[in-house]
Design a protein around this nucleic acid. Sequence first.
RNA 1: GGGCCAUUAGCUCAGGCGGCAGAGCACCUGACUUUUAAUCAGGGUGUCCCAGGUUCGAGUCCUGGAUGGCUCACCA
Length: 488
Amino acid sequence: MSEDHHSDELYVRQRKLDELREKGVQPYGEKYEVTHRAMDIIDDFEKLVGKSVKVSGRILSRRGHGKASFANIQDMSGKIQLYIRQDSVGEGNYNIYKSLDVGDIIGVTGEVFKTKTGEITINISSFKLLSKSLRPLPEKWHGLKDIELRYRQRYVDLIVNPAVREVFIARSKVIQAIREYLNRKGFLEVETPVMHGIAGGANARPFITHHNALNINLYLRIATELHLKRLVVGGMEKVYELGRIFRNEGISTNHNPEFTTVEIYQANTDYEDMMRLTEELVASVAEEVFGTLKMSYGGKELDLSLPWPRRDLLDLVREITGVDFTSIPDDEGARQVALEKGLELKGGESRGEIIFTFFEKFCEDRLWGPIFVKKYPVEVSPLAKRCSDDPRFTCRFETFLAGKEIANAFTELIDPLDQRARFEAQMRKRAAGDEEAHMMDEDFLTALEYGMPPTGGLGIGIDRLIMILTDSPSIRDVILFPTMRPRE
RNA sequence: GGGCCAUUAGCUCAGGCGGCAGAGCACCUGACUUUUAAUCAGGGUGUCCCAGGUUCGAGUCCUGGAUGGCUCACCA
């Protein structure tokens, strides 16, 4: 509406940039040889007081006092205060300093001292503009709160919300600690294809992409499982892969279309060993990164101290719902009791599927954990070995922390004939319209036919684990750039 | 996909019953050489998410849409 731009910040900053160039100041400079980070100066003040340091960072706040000024700059380590006097830097430079804005990145050189109010400060003798910021930062008290903007413009979120940076530093440390733990135990980290001809290893709908030269459609992987097990067949007895997988499903506070898992396979172990591995891995990572096993999530305590309880799924269903499926041996009886409990059935559900539904609907949200739930029905566990005492159940467990499923593991099914029968059952579900049922994978069956050693396998959802360890309510808070619908 | 809620200045937010678009911070002009939410004097910078409708008059009421959040469904 108005041609008067005098306080339009974008316009004002663009004009300042032009004026700097006219004065011979390069607004986008070259690297500044820093000697310290902001936090080093705070931490080592006694050693550094009176000494000259070089620091660079982004101006976060300015307090002008005529011919002297204070400012705070921020680098990766934190914030430090600057003190700039006209008689220290010269009138010309001081005028340039005065034209700088919150958001600009500068390099400074000066002596470390403490102000009369006790704040550790750098008394600037010279400074250099390294990068001119053309956009105003969010306001200093309230920061950036708009959740949509925080996710879409994570760079701004990271600049103004220090807690966000802390979460992602913690995420990096957790992942590093997981790698170190597994490497120390003799596991080999491997990388398997992200683009699959057959998307297997989980119940999920895949993303589809196209390879032009081969003129074929490929799927983005929904799990790393089947390739890792091929490697165990190949003699790689202890392997893991930490990486991104993709599932073409809904988005929620616990689901992002792309997310990170670690899958771990170890020959000559079973799911009991995987329980021990899970609890030890999580507890040692928590201890190492956060220095404690007494966590808190959403205001509720979560004690990761070992050992974690192990409970049979069927026992939990009986305790929580009062239904004892050991006395309901057939599909028809199971369907009856499901209807009595008000569950909606599509028809044709097996006893095992109904037991699993009972667990999901009535039990899962009551498990705060940590807890291992074991022995899942064979119908919902097509890659897990059957229990020797009851072939309708499998040597499979899931781990719950703070009410969230964070791990899924089993004694792997290594019998190629049983595996083929399981795939065939999945194919029948797929033919009946279940788009999440597993696909037949002949090459995987071929691998099993060569002989796979008895093996325990474990998958951990890294994002959810980090949510819990950092007390983050949404998975988007632990993913730097969560999936969003594009703007415009 | 369903339900509920939100969307107003760069940011954080007010705007009763439909009657000239508001505050703080930021920004602009000026003063100020140890401040720290610096202070003091002045200045409001806007596609009220979008498109229709009702009305003399819509930020406000109605309809449709967009984006986001929570939640249910689905999944991990």
